[in-house]
């Protein structure tokens, strides 16, 4: 892509770069059935493994399990220092999940996120910052239950979207 002279200044400052590899403060969630029910209902997935305890037991799951992308609702904590987000607007670029274990009711899942890569692109919407984060979900037995690698895109000026800080 051709870069105009006006956009040669990078938004990836040394301060921002210092977040690469820095882990967020771990957060541990107790998984309760109503959170799973609400999630399954919100996405509109009628699978009884998520809501029918007897059914899940008969199917050898031991307890209700959560839909695969339920992990997404277990938000990571903040970084040990404030993340200097340069932009106001946010778009989700995508997610890659690797699942080792389903989340079950009664699990305790610890979530840690770190930024693995930062890069920028210059286009129609001006400069856009791409942030690749890896989120690790570890269960109460110390088993890595899943990882999610996400791409977060931010751009533009103005009033910051109040949901920015969680992504």
């Amino acid at each position: 892509m051709k870069k105009s002279n006006l956009t040669c200044d990078t938004v990836i400052t040394d301060e921002l770069r210092s977040f690469i590899g820095l882990e967020s403060n771990p957060v541990t969630y107790d998984i309760e059935r109503h959170a799973i029910e609400r999630f399954a209902c919100a996405i509109g997935d009628p699978n009884p493994l998520y809501t029918d305890y007897e059914f899940a037991k008969v199917r050898g799951r031991g307890n209700l399990i959560a839909p695969p992308t339920f992990y997404r609702s277990l938000l990571p904590g903040r970084y040990p220092k404030p993340y200097p987000e340069p932009f106001a607007h946010i778009l989700d670029g995508g997610s890659d999940y690797k699942f080792n274990e389903s989340v079950k009711v009664g699990d305790q899942i610890t979530v840690v996120r770190k930024v693995t890569k930062l890069y920028e692109k210059h286009g129609r919407m001006g400069t856009m910052l791409f942030k690749i984060s890896e989120i690790r979900y570890t269960n109460q037995e110390g088993i890595l239950a899943a990882t999610q690698t996400t791409t977060t895109i931010t751009y533009g000026t103005g009033k910051k979207d109040n949901g920015l800080v969680d992504h």
């Binding site: 609400r38 999630f39 919100a42 997404r72 609702s73 946010i90 949901g163 969680d166």
Partner: peptide, 16 residues
């Protein structure tokens, strides 16, 4: 309505 349900269930409060 489903977007609001999903926002609540997933804790995603990005206002767009």
């Amino acid at each position: 309505r489903q977007l609001v349900m999903y926002a609540g269930a997933s804790q995603d409060f990005v206002a767009i």
